[in-house]
Amino acid sequence: MKGFLGIDVGSVSTNIVFIDENKQVIEKEYTFTHGRVLSALKQSLNAVMERLPADLEILGTGVTGSAAELARSIVNADLYKTEIYSHARATVHEFPDVRTIFEIGGQDSKVIYIKDGVPIRSRMNEWCGAGTGSMLDAQSSRLGVPIGELGALAVQSTKVIDFRTRCGVFIESCAIDAQARGYSVAEIAAGLCNACAKNFINTLNIDRKKLETPIVFQGGVAANIGVKQALERYIEEGGGVKCNLLIPKHYNVMGALGIALAVRDAYAREPWESSGFRGMEVINKIETCIVDANTCGEKVQNRSNRYGDILQLTIGNQVIATL
């Protein structure tokens, strides 16, 4: 089997998608990064490879996500694109007439506006993570509710508490105040989902009146039905359309799918002889270490023209890449 690997290393999860030459998703993997890019990447690559047939031929690999630079060196990827591009690419593939994309991930949130199948404008949360999965993560573990159940719990509540704040830390204070006043966990959960949705819309300055449908909602938080319903309600309250947010089949690995599709396109346009992919045998042996350039005796310049700490990828004593 021939195909393409898409790798998205994000703050919270490391995602891998393998597609065949006909853009069909053959395998996907969603693993928590837990702060360890190298081991998460090895683990999820191995998991995907094990499930793929033995006659596998990787024609190309692509990387995206916040740790894309590191991941690119580890696998020696053929293509790098930003998360915004990758998410848009995957969504347009699944919903060709999409006009708006909401993406809520671990610490990132983005809105991408699409026209004629091409992204025309985007916005990311630059300074505030209150409208992202990390806020929900922190609060659900405080409530002792598994994050996967928070949304279902929230929609059971008939009352939605309006936490009047735009800060993730102060939301906790509000939630504690609510529990002290006797609200149930479900009601608090509904309040949290509502706060996430409102923060998302406000942080990204989304003009609800001008939103165009279809709107696709993706990223890890799209699994949360509470946030989905809160977004729909909040859009309508703000004078926007009454809409049903569409959730893609592969909602939590859209970045990886998008970059896999982008590699496939690049390959189809101008095929290369062989992919730079190092192969699992090599990748499994790679270690990383941070070297302080100032203690090396001489200044070492890395790829992004910065001086300071440099990262070396090594196999045994051999340095295979510096960045």
Binding site: K81, E83, S122
Partner: peptide, 11 residues
């Protein structure tokens, strides 16, 4: 925010 700038060029 380099991702924003790079994605802008991509667009």
């Amino acid at each position: 925010n380099k991702i924003e700038l790079k994605s802008f060029i991509e667009m």
